[in-house]
Design a protein around this nucleic acid. Structure first.
Lengths: 337, 337
DNA sequence: CTGTTAGCGCATTCAG
DNA sequence: CTGAATGCGCTAACAG
């Protein structure tokens, strides 16, 4: 590749002038300017972002660390972040921590070494507090994504989880369901904890007995998850509804229900968070609490943008609302069952 | 951030020595080494990847440009690329061209400016030949992903598309289907063209009349796509099977079929490429030609790795096989219809 | 076994 | 309006 020096030589000007026409950072005589432009063309010169970043101490890049690229909701957030970042002329550096704390801190470290201007982090399930503390010492802007904490020193964006779960439980309760099974997942994940909280609140509010509900809190990689679901399916106390707290948990639940020879909604009502795409095209169509994952990603970049622009306000927390899409899987419950 | 100079000063050695312990690039006395390590600890020094890359003229990063982050198959490829790149200690720079040639070349340009060591490119539908030509002049290693061309000057990896389509058509023909509808999509996309080719081959091989088949080649963003599908649904020539060539096209097809009050597989057999995740949990379960998208991503990084290691062999083309998952949507066709 | 030093390519003072 | 010169932080000769 040609460098700025060659361009300058060919145009018969100094590198300084070339730099200035490149960045439009001071006036240059139209004629000179034209010569420079021609030289750039002729040498097929391209700016070296590395050298530029080094000199300006800004990379115009941001890093994104997510815990599970396979989960549809996260894939969609990545999409949103990518979209918003591109709009701002920011390059995106993507890392997947695969729900591992070590990989997570390694990823963060690598991104900081690369001097990203900002960092968007969805913490892994077993993420330690340390990573947040470490990050505080850095001068990079940080936004926490999806998995938030109440006392975050950083801006954070995610969805409101308790409220929709309460509505969902309320809906099921008023349809006559007295015993439900919550497939709750890993309780170290804030999002899932909030959903479980919302469940408990909803149960109490509906005047149901919390001790008669079943909560399965196995991590999705735990083989005991499937067993627990199977056990719940044939629970002698006869639960009538299942709620899954994520796509992966929904898959596990549907599989076990099917394997037990039961059907939805004939034998059980069913609802899930996140869910499946185009669920309405298939039977049973599934009642789903849908988060605006793309928008969450976009919002994260928005928050970051403000910080990059120098905002020093107190940490902000943005909660986006989820919507409940009621479908057949909760719709045909027969009270007389 | 502390620099290597401060570390050197604190440890009472030269920056050279610090660099060498950092990179393990020459022997240093254990005692000295320990002092350096302590100094690194004390100053919480971190290497500056930018300066390092500049000096070594290698960034240990690769770029990935995809045309549609929303398409599940691409999302999965991104996942595979990310996974394989991380394993090699390569940082991933991700861009989405949104099927636009301009965005695509802009993305490529930005990545080259950032001096990625290699580039993985899934070309957009309207990608011009120019981009390939431009890339040839660069010293970056390039791998074409998914959307390949027969005379590529670069390594490329994708799936074999004709063969599974032929098998699919053959399967349908022997089940008694004489008139089929191919929802083929944008014919500028090589992958989709190959699938359409395979369709024609399959029809001929089955001894069917090609002129009695319907091929809908509207781009998925074209509003006429839905109309064309609707028309095919009520075609007086009574086609009995639909084949969609991508997830998005499958969605469009299923929507129109449903909207017309028809059902699968009662009224039509149906099969799709790429398809939906966990399709077996829902009714109708959909016969799907499934590509190993994650592995395609991994394979792309493998090819790139060889080039980064200096391989100068002729351009290689890797075709991964797809598998056909036969399910209910093609299984219950009644010949007597 | 370790230190000195010259750039990598650019943006940016400071002079003119 | 333009040029010369400095240094961002690091690695890799080269020298000792």
């Amino acid at each position: 590749m040609a460098t700025i020096v060659e361009v300058a030589a060919l145009a018969g000007v100094s590198t300084s002038t070339v730099s200035h026409v490149l960045n439009e950072t001071r006036h240059v005589e139209p004629a000179t300017r034209r010569r420079v432009l021609e030289a750039i063309e002729k040498t097929s010169y391209r700016q070296d972002a590395l050298a530029r970043a080094m000199r300006r101490s800004r990379t115009d890049s941001i890093g994104l660390v997510i815990p599970d690229a396979g989960e549809p909701a996260f894939a969609e957030m990545v999409h949103g972040v990518e979209h918003a970042a591109a709009k701002l002329g920011l390059t995106l550096l993507l890392s997947n921590s695969a729900e591992s704390a070590e990989r997570e801190s390694k990823a963060v470290r690598v991104l900081l070494e690369r001097r990203v201007d900002g960092l968007i982090l969805a913490r892994s399930a077993n993420s330690s507090r340390d990573i947040v503390d470490d990050l505080r010492g850095e001068n990079a802007a940080v936004v926490l994504l999806d998995r938030m904490s109440p006392d975050s020193p950083f801006d954070q964006v995610g969805t409101e989880n308790r409220q929709p779960m309460r509505s969902l439980v309320s809906h099921l309760a008023s349809a006559g369901h007295r015993r439900m099974v919550l497939v709750a997942g890993d309780m170290r994940v804030p999002t899932l904890r909030e959903r479980a909280d919302g469940f408990a609140m909803g149960i109490v509010e509906a005047g149901l007995d919390i001790s008669e509900q079943t909560v399965i809190a196995s991590d999705q990689t735990d083989p005991s998850l499937a067993e627990a679901i199977t056990r719940a399916v044939s629970d002698p106390r006869r639960p009538t509804a299942f709620i899954a707290c994520s796509t992966v948990l929904a898959v596990a639940t549907l599989e076990r229900v099917k394997a037990a020879g039961k059907a939805i909604p004939r034998d059980f009502a069913f609802a899930t968070f996140d869910g499946f795409s185009h669920s309405d095209l298939f039977e049973p169509s599934i009642t789903t609490v849908r988060q605006p994952a793309f928008e969450v990603g976009v919002a994260a970049v928005d928050l970051l943008k403000d910080r990059l622009a120098g905002s020093t306000s107190l940490p902000r927390t943005v909660h986006l609302a989820q919507t409940i899409e009621y479908r057949d899987s909760t719709g045909r419950f027969e009270l007389a069952r």
